[in-house]
C-alpha cells in the first residue's frame, strides 16, 4: 500500500478482480459507495464493449461479421493511441491480433491449444476504418486491445476518483499503475523471479506500466504478447516498463518496447522506457528515472 495512504486514518483499500486481472485501489480518503458503484459500472461498461472473451461484447460482434459498428466514446482515443504504436513499431502493435491469440490458444475458453500455422494479423488499412466512434470493417476481425486497453481503463478510473475530489490515490491493475499524491516507491519485478526486483522507481505522479511474458505463458514459448507482423509470440525481450503521464500511453509503450528500443519510442511518444532481455541485460532511455541494481 502507498505509504502516504497508510498514514491517513481514513485510508481505504478496494480490491477486486475485473477484466481478467487483479485490481487494487488505495485512497487516502474513504471511497463513497456511490463512487464504488461508479467504478464497477465503468469497468463493466468497458468490458461489455471491448472484451474479446464475452460473446455479448461489441468486439465479439465485430469478429462475427463485417459492417459498421459504433464502438462508443472510448474508441477514438484508443484507436489513435494504437495507430501511433502501430506506426512506431512498423505494424507489430496492432488492435487486430485477437484472431492470432485465439489461434495460439489464448481464447475465450482458455483452451491453450494451438490451431493452425502462425500468420500475420490483418493489415489495418485493409480491414478497418474508424470514423468518429464508428468502425467500418471489410471482413470479420478480432479486436484485442490488450496492449493499451487496461491502461486506458486505469486512467478512466483515476478520472472518476479525481472528479469525486480524491487527490491522493493509487490505482493498480496489476502491472498498470497510476498514482496521485506523495511519491511512492515501486519495485521493478524481476521477470525470472517474482520475489526479486531489478530496481526501484520513485513515482511522483502519473503512470508506470509493466509487461512481461512470464505469467501468461501456456506452453513452449507461447504467451500473450503477439507480433502483429508474424502472428507469433515475441522472443528475446522478457520484460518492459514505461512511465508516462497517463496509463494508456505507458501501457501501450510497455507493449511497444517488445518491438522497438526505449530511445526510439521516447522520441515518438511522451514516455520513458526500460526493457530487459532474456539474457538478463537491460536497455533504457536516458530519462527512465529508476535506481537499477547492478
Amino acid at each position: 500500500m502507498p505509504t502516504n495512504v497508510d498514514a491517513s486514518p481514513n485510508a481505504t483499500t478496494l480490491m477486486f478482480d475485473a477484466i481478467g486481472t487483479r485490481w487494487q485501489i488505495d485512497t487516502a480518503d474513504p471511497l463513497s459507495s456511490t463512487l464504488r458503484v461508479g467504478i464497477a459500472d465503468l469497468i463493466d461498461d468497458f468490458d461489455r464493449t471491448w472484451s474479446r472473451f464475452r460473446p455479448d461484447s461489441l468486439v465479439a460482434d465485430v469478429a462475427r461479421s463485417s459492417g459498421t459498428f459504433d464502438l462508443g466514446a472510448d474508441a477514438p482515443a484508443i484507436f489513435a493511441l494504437y495507430r501511433r504504436l502501430h506506426d512506431v513499431t512498423d505494424g507489430a502493435v496492432s488492435p487486430f491480433v485477437g484472431g492470432r491469440l485465439d489461434a495460439l490458444g489464448y481464447d475465450a475458453n482458455y483452451s491453450f491449444t494451438q490451431r493452425g500455422i502462425p500468420s500475420p494479423a490483418p493489415v489495418w488499412d485493409e480491414v478497418a476504418l474508424l470514423v468518429g466512434t464508428r468502425l467500418t470493417t471489410t471482413r470479420p476481425v478480432s479486436i484485442d486491445i490488450g496492449a493499451a486497453g487496461k491502461g486506458y481503463l486505469v486512467d478512466r478510473v483515476a478520472e472518476l476518483l479525481h472528479s469525486a475530489g480524491h487527490t491522493a490515490f493509487t490505482v493498480d491493475a496489476s502491472g498498470d499503475l497510476v498514482h496521485s499524491g506523495e511519491p511512492i516507491r515501486v519495485a521493478l519485478e524481476h521477470p525470472f523471479d517474482p520475489a526479486l526486483a531489478i530496481g526501484v522507481l520513485t513515482l511522483g505522479g502519473g503512470a508506470l506500466c509493466a509487461s512481461a511474458t512470464n505469467r501468461r505463458v501456456w506452453s513452449n514459448g507461447l504467451h500473450h504478447v503477439i507480433d502483429g507482423r508474424t502472428g507469433q509470440p515475441t522472443r528475446s525481450v522478457s520484460a518492459t516498463w514505461a512511465t508516462a503521464a497517463d496509463a494508456a500511453t505507458a501501457d501501450g509503450a510497455a507493449t511497444a518496447l517488445f518491438f522497438t528500443t526505449p530511445s526510439e519510442l521516447s522520441a515518438a511518444l511522451p514516455i520513458q522506457g526500460l526493457r530487459m532481455f532474456t539474457d538478463g541485460s537491460v536497455e533504457y532511455s536516458a530519462g527512465f528515472a529508476a535506481e537499477l541494481f547492478r
Binding site: G175, R185, L196, L201, V282
Partner: peptide
C-alpha cells in the same frame, strides 16, 4: 546495463510493477 535481482522483501516499496 547488466542488472541483478534483489529480494523485494528487503526493499522499502509500496508497490511492485511486473507482469500482470
Amino acid at each position: 546495463a547488466e542488472v541483478v535481482g534483489q529480494p523485494i522483501d528487503s526493499l522499502n516499496v509500496s508497490k511492485v510493477a511486473g507482469s500482470s
